[in-house]
């Protein structure tokens, strides 16, 4: 699932999909934690999942706000269109 999210992140150009892919990746990481916690019968894995949940919530809030700004500026959700930097 992590790999799927990663591929989504790399392949899609729509910012909304990228954010979703990130959610998937975070979720995958959380799943890994919970599985590991279950394997050893420890609560730590679930605690970590809680933290990941917090991070995901914060990230999605800021990310969506940025998405709105991007859309108002460029009228598209294509992240490559937002590239005006000339290195």
């Amino acid at each position: 699932m992590f790999a799927l999210g990663l591929i989504g992140l790399l392949v899609r150009r729509n910012l909304l999909f990228i954010l979703m892919a990130i959610e998937v990746m975070l979720n995958a990481a959380g799943l890994a934690f919970v599985s590991a916690g279950a394997r050893w019968g420890q609560a730590d894995g679930q605690v970590m999942f809680l933290f990941i949940l917090t991070v995901a919530a914060a990230e999605v809030a800021v990310g969506l706000a940025l998405l709105l700004r991007l859309y108002h500026r460029f009228h598209s959700l294509d992240v490559d269109a937002a590239s005006e930097m000339r290195g």
Binding site: L6, L9, L10, I18, V79, D80, A82, M85, R86, G87
Partner: peptide
């Protein structure tokens, strides 16, 4: 190095991965 500064988010993400 500034050649890598393309401003493309996906390019950055790829480089990160």
């Amino acid at each position: 190095l500034r050649l890598t500064e393309t401003g493309r988010v996906r390019w950055y993400a790829t480089a990160l991965v």
